[in-house]
Amino acid sequence: MARLELNSVGKAFGAVRCANDLSLIVEPGEIVAVFGPSGSGKTVLLRMIAGMFEPDEGDILVGGRSIIGAPPEHRGVGMAFQNFALFPHMSAQDNIASGLRAKAAGGEVTSRVNSISRLLKIEHVLGHMPRELSNGQKQRTALARALIGNPEVLLLDDPLRNVDAKLRYEMRLELPSLLRRSSAAVLYVTQDYREAMAIADRIAVLIEGRLVQVARPEEIYARPASVAVARLFGDPSINLAEVTPRAEQGALTAEVAGTRVRLESPDRQPADYGACWLGVRPDDLTVARTAGEGAIPARIVAITPMHERAVLLLRFADGIEWLAALPPDAAVGSAEDSVFVRFAPEAALLFDRASGLRIGLPPRRQAA
């Protein structure tokens, strides 16, 4: 199989830039999730690779061969769309076989349709028309059509968005092994960070047409490159406060709502920090009724039970509001109660307030 390479790819529609200097390598058998908010350019990126749009700058290579200008059928690319895009007048079997009939004999087509449908557990609906299929069956039929030609590159445009929650959860478990079995280089577009973290080997975070971080899921969650990336991962979202770190008794500290808290210091002098954003994820907060070193006084504004945890809305004395995610049986009080909030120094993230970039980030390398 072949690797997919994007080299400084750019695209604009009039004055609107949809892709800016995109560089990325996807190895055979690797799943890279392209994740970002709506309008960030994810679908445009897939369509440039598929041949629906041509980039204005840069190059796209499959197996070391440029595919710029090549017709879609000669690119070695398979694609499954968000809206399934099945032919309404064809059965599921004919939809799956449609991209293969011009390349293979009838017996081979039937054999490969049966094989891929068994793999995706849709062999019992091959004779059904699209209107007779559930959304989950339509999604699997579209995926089978994309996989049947053994493409070198597989593009999946938010394929689970229109299926129900139960099937979405099941497919998150099944898809990674299924996709790796194909040995294709996979680009998987999604707006769901949980889906990206569950399915992908690496995540490419796309914001306003730029790749702002490419890394393994656990690294992006623990060490986001910027405030913007940190806000995209986690539910509830990361807590932020404006701080100016300083050295105190040999440690790096910051003041949050009038309380001096200790931080884990990256390799730089405290005087070099300046104005920062302090970020702490709700899961990293502890809430107690008793005070202690580094405990920030707060008032519980509201408690939202969420089955596996309870989310507390906390308000500090200076009006800042943070969220804490705690076990549902944590007896910390009720609304309007006074409590104390703590977090471990290693749980704190610091971001430059002007640029939004995380402090302590290693020198930026080309995405690969």
Score class of each variant (00 low, 15 high):
residue 288 A to K: 08
residue 119 L to N: 02
residue 303 I to K: 12
residue 2 A to Q: 05
residue 79 M to C: 02
residue 122 I to N: 03
residue 268 R to W: 03
residue 311 V to L: 15
residue 186 V to T: 15
residue 149 G to A: 08
residue 139 Q to M: 13
residue 147 L to G: 13
residue 176 P to A: 03
residue 145 R to M: 08
residue 248 E to P: 00
residue 323 L to K: 14
residue 258 G to D: 09
residue 361 L to I: 05
residue 170 E to W: 00
residue 179 L to C: 06
residue 95 N to A: 06
residue 83 N to P: 06
residue 56 D to C: 04
residue 110 T to W: 00
residue 109 V to A: 02
residue 21 D to E: 11
residue 261 V to P: 03
residue 37 P to M: 07
residue 222 A to R: 15
residue 239 N to M: 03
residue 232 L to N: 03
residue 297 P to N: 03
residue 20 N to A: 10
residue 345 P to Q: 05
residue 96 I to C: 01
residue 306 M to N: 07
residue 361 L to T: 13
residue 190 T to R: 12
residue 66 S to Y: 06
residue 96 I to P: 01
residue 109 V to S: 08
residue 143 L to P: 12
residue 160 L to M: 13
residue 252 L to G: 00
residue 165 A to G: 00
residue 169 Y to E: 13
residue 215 A to G: 11
residue 139 Q to V: 07
residue 197 M to C: 06
residue 116 I to V: 15
residue 207 I to V: 15
residue 113 V to D: 02
residue 306 M to D: 01
residue 178 L to R: 11
residue 110 T to S: 09
residue 269 Q to I: 04
residue 275 A to S: 14
residue 6 L to V: 08
residue 132 E to A: 15
residue 142 A to E: 04
residue 34 V to A: 07
residue 2 A to G: 11
residue 138 K to N: 10
residue 341 V to G: 04
residue 170 E to A: 11
residue 128 H to V: 00
residue 305 P to R: 01
residue 13 F to G: 07
residue 333 G to M: 04
residue 43 T to F: 05
residue 160 L to K: 04
residue 18 C to A: 15
residue 209 G to L: 09
residue 136 G to I: 05
residue 300 I to C: 10
residue 255 E to N: 15
residue 90 M to F: 11
residue 316 F to R: 09
residue 104 A to V: 13
residue 247 A to N: 04
residue 107 G to S: 12
residue 174 E to Q: 13
residue 69 G to T: 03
residue 271 A to R: 14
residue 74 H to D: 13
residue 354 A to H: 10
residue 164 D to W: 07
residue 242 E to I: 11
residue 157 D to Y: 12
residue 323 L to D: 05
residue 313 L to V: 06
residue 317 A to D: 15
residue 125 V to I: 15
residue 8 S to K: 15
residue 7 N to K: 13
residue 293 E to Y: 01
residue 42 K to Y: 05
residue 266 P to T: 10
residue 294 G to L: 06
residue 103 K to Y: 04
residue 86 L to I: 07
residue 355 S to I: 06
residue 28 P to A: 12
residue 131 R to A: 12
residue 360 G to C: 07
residue 242 E to N: 02
residue 291 A to L: 00
residue 7 N to R: 15
residue 276 C to N: 03
residue 246 R to E: 09
residue 366 Q to G: 14
residue 140 R to A: 11
residue 20 N to S: 14
residue 198 A to R: 10
residue 186 V to E: 07
residue 268 R to A: 10
residue 217 P to A: 11
residue 89 H to N: 14
residue 63 G to V: 08
residue 157 D to R: 10
residue 195 E to N: 10
residue 219 E to P: 00
residue 226 S to P: 09
residue 187 L to Y: 01
residue 336 E to S: 14
residue 339 V to N: 00
residue 279 G to V: 04
residue 207 I to F: 08
residue 339 V to C: 05
residue 12 A to P: 05
residue 67 I to Q: 02
residue 177 S to P: 03
residue 291 A to Q: 09
residue 253 T to Y: 00
residue 53 F to N: 12
residue 284 D to C: 00
residue 282 P to A: 03
residue 292 G to L: 02
residue 53 F to Q: 08
residue 353 R to G: 01
residue 229 V to K: 10
residue 68 I to N: 13
residue 344 A to W: 06
residue 175 L to H: 04
residue 123 E to P: 09
residue 91 S to F: 07
residue 355 S to F: 01
residue 31 I to Q: 01
residue 287 V to E: 04
residue 54 E to S: 14
residue 36 G to Q: 04
residue 89 H to T: 13
residue 29 G to W: 09
residue 229 V to N: 02
residue 91 S to R: 12
residue 183 S to R: 14
